[in-house]
Amino acid sequence: MFFVKELTHRILLHPSYFGPQMEKFLENKLYADVEGTCSGAYGYIIAVLSIVDIGQGNVLSGTGQAEFITVYRAIVFKPFKGEVVDGIVGEVNKMGFFVEVGPLNVFVSNHLIDPEMKFDPNSNPPSYASQDQIIERDTHVRLKIVGTRVDATEIFAIGTIKEDHLGVVE
C-alpha cells in the first residue's frame, strides 16, 4: 500500500559546500540518499514529495561539518498481508514464479497457483499454462500477498493467484 509519510533524514555537509548553492545541494543530496531505499519500518521510499524543513545547520565541533536534520514528505510503499497488487512476472521455474511489484519481489509458489495451470519446462521461455491462460516472463499478473517478512533494509513477500479475480491481467 502507498502512503504519504513525513520522514526525517540527517545530512552531514562538508564546509566546502557552505555558500549560496547550499540549499540546492542539500535537496539533491536528500533525493539521492533516500529515494529508492527500503526501510523496514516504512517500506520502500518511492519519491520525495516536498521538503517540509531543511533544518538548521549545526556546525559540529571537531569536524566542522554542518548537520542538517531534514524533514520531508515522501510516498512510501509498504506491502501488507492480504493486499492485492499487480506486477510483472520475472523468473519462472518448476517451483513457482517471481513477480516484480515495483521495487518488491514477490514469490508465488506452485502450491498457490491454480492446479489447472501446469508448469511446462519445454516451453521457451518456461511457463505455467492452462487451457486459456499462460504465465511466463513479462506477463502481467494480479496477486494477493499472503505473507511478508521485514528485514531492517529489505522486505520479502509471498503471493497467491489461487483465488477469484487473481492471475493474468489482460
Binding site: M95, S109, H111, V146, G147, T148, R149, F156, I158
Partner: peptide, 16 residues
C-alpha cells in the same frame, strides 16, 4: 515444505 527468504511459500508465515 517450501520456503524462500525465511517465508513459507504456502502460508506466508515468517519462518525465522
Amino acid at each position: 515444505s517450501m520456503q524462500i527468504a525465511g517465508l513459507c511459500t504456502q502460508c506466508g508465515k515468517d519462518m525465522t
